[in-house]
Amino acid sequence: MVKYALKRFALMLMTLFIITAICFVLIRLLPPVQLPLGDPHTEVVEARREALGYNRPILVQFGLYLKAIFTRGDWGISDKLYLGQDVLKLFISKLPATMLVNLYSIIFSIPIGIALGVFAALKKNTWIDHAISTLTMVVISVPSFVYAFLLQYFLSYKISLFPFLMKGGTDYFSWSMFVSMLPAVMSLSFGSIAGFTRTTRAELTEVLTSEFMLLARTKGLTKRQATVRHAFKNCMVVIVPAIFGSFVGILGGSFIIEKIFSVPGVGSLYINSINGRDYPLFMMLTVFYTTIGLASGIVVDISYGFIDPRIRMGSKK
């Protein structure tokens, strides 16, 4: 188990390294951004570029880039949008908003999603099940900006229940901040509720028809006992890794939702860095998003092994 986890981790590092190298080369091949003349930061950025070896071979540049990261934790400084500011500090300052919005969304969606899924599975093939399943399908298909539009138009504009955009400032735990986050949280939640419902329903319907359920009923357990003790436990084998995966995912956030509700988070920073051609920022966030994507995959895979001892990780199928 540990060996498998280590192996996966090493593979992930290798993948990450290759992706970083490719992205780095592709970005450095682009002509560097013209710096504004006369700005006091220009000189700083120029000096930094010289130190980062902008005029030397790309592999040397990559070496210098990695060295700066590992020795000083230095990811470079923004050369366009936030001229002269440290990229890492910028990123860290944007992290709380993203994390909070996503955390709230997950906290909302996990219980609702699982409850709906269980309900649908228990009422399998009745109209309730069909209604929930179809609705789930519909909700998953519709892109999140449509929810954002509907919520913003009806709740924020028509009945003025919520503010239009997320509140500025850094008082992340105040009540007014919470209220102003709600539209964004809700637009994110629709999709994840539907996702959890679908997984739970699919898994539970399969478990409910398996033989040990019959055995549990035969030995005298009530339907409720059998479902809670045996079926639900087995169905958790799939759900819990999904939950772990989405907890890793909260760091990432959603680009579109953050843009629409102007959440001062990582997602909108990333979009801005792309549209504003701020390469150091773009490079750093690319590494960040790649790491998150890879990490959540690993967390999901490994947690299977921890939750269900029957699953032998790394063995040949």
């Binding site: 992205c23 592709l26 990333y270 790649t290």
Partner: peptide, 19 residues
């Protein structure tokens, strides 16, 4: 394919646009 699938799609789209 592992390496390719590890790159977020938005990065691929952006890099292709830029280059």
């Amino acid at each position: 394919s592992d390496v390719l699938s590890g790159v977020p799609f938005i990065v691929v789209a952006t890099l292709f646009q830029l280059h």
